[in-house]
């Protein structure tokens, strides 16, 4: 590629960066600036500059810290399960199995429905639905109302999130698997590699780009989860499942503490950014190009 061609680079990259800056970067920087004031978020009302006070308060806000910890736990669970399930199904539907197309569609369908509605449906299942099943089967140690128990409510959230996004992750892995040239697989099989060996030494390294992408996308989406959180548990019971985005939303829109909410958001963003960007650079190094 002719490296001196600034014209081409600008043409290819410019429009995207422009629109992106206006829509994402400018509001983000505005938001950061607002974290240094005491304000209720209403344009017509006064802002009072208070420096780092919001940040100091945030670091001693036990409810915020609990919500951040819960979010990390949720993310860990959701990311592991979603990627495992998505990868397994992707491998299955790209194998020689029958009805692969149908299975692929079925696994993907939950993703077609927005998180808000899904949350309501699953809310019913975990509360009333489980009660009915518990009465019928008598297995009350599994089939009770999960949403009334702080730990199980979080499990429920992980479960629903996995159910919804496994299909989306499956699509990404399928794309990755498709880029492996068939002759490479056949050559490896001729050399005696099968099953697990074939997967771990040949297939997996070649789909590492898909893995990086999928890992990062599930990580970022899990940290940001809101819709499903709102409709499935509404943060309950007793704020036990109030995850990070909900804590911020409540602070800004219900409590009316805009600057404080923004400070919390910036803090969390910094922590999460360090964590996930480290992940991206590690896995990118392990990618194999052709």
């Amino acid at each position: 590629m002719k490296r001196k061609d600034w014209y081409w680079n600008l043409l290819f990259v410019g429009p995207t960066v422009c629109i992106f800056s206006l829509v994402v970067l400018v509001p983000f920087v505005m938001g950061i600036s607002y974290s240094f004031v005491s304000w209720d978020g209403i344009a017509a009302n006064a802002k009072r500059f208070i420096g780092f006070t919001n940040y100091v308060s945030a670091m001693s806000d036990t409810r915020f810290i609990r919500s951040a910890v819960k979010t990390f736990i949720f993310t860990a669970g959701a990311v592991v399960l979603t990627n495992a399930l998505g990868l397994i199904v992707a491998l299955l539907v790209t194998s020689k199995m029958k009805l692969a197309g149908v299975v692929r569609t079925f696994y993907f369908m939950p993703y077609l429905i927005g998180g808000l509605i899904l949350g309501y449906i699953w809310k019913f299942i975990f509360s009333d639905g489980f009660a009915i099943i518990g009465n019928v089967t008598g297995w009350k140690f599994i089939f009770f109302n999960w949403l009334l128990n702080p730990t199980f409510a979080l499990f429920a959230l992980i479960f629903v999130s996995t159910w919804q996004t496994a299909g989306y992750v499956m699509i990404i892995y399928i794309s990755g698997i498709q880029t492996i040239p068939q002759d490479l697989i056949e050559a490896a099989e001729v050399d005696g590699a099968h099953g697990w060996k074939l997967f771990w030494h040949i297939k997996f390294p070649l789909i590492m780009p898909a893995f990086t992408i999928s890992l990062f996308m599930t990580l970022s989406n899990s940290f940001k989860i809101f819709d499903t959180n709102l409709s499935l548990t509404a943060g309950g019971p007793s704020n036990a499942t109030e995850l990070f985005a909900m804590n911020i939303y409540n602070e800004i829109f219900l409590n009316g503490n805009y600057g404080y909410g923004q400070a919390k958001a910036v803090l969390f963003f910094i922590i999460v950014a360090i964590f996930t960007l480290a992940q991206v650079s590690i896995t990118k190094k392990r990618e194999v190009g052709l």
Partner: peptide
């Protein structure tokens, strides 16, 4: 680009519309 994927929309909502 990658870093901004971590920002929850809730924090961008108000400034976006204001801007």
């Amino acid at each position: 680009f990658v870093a901004t994927m971590l920002i929850p929309f809730q924090t961008l909502m108000m400034p976006l519309i204001q801007f």
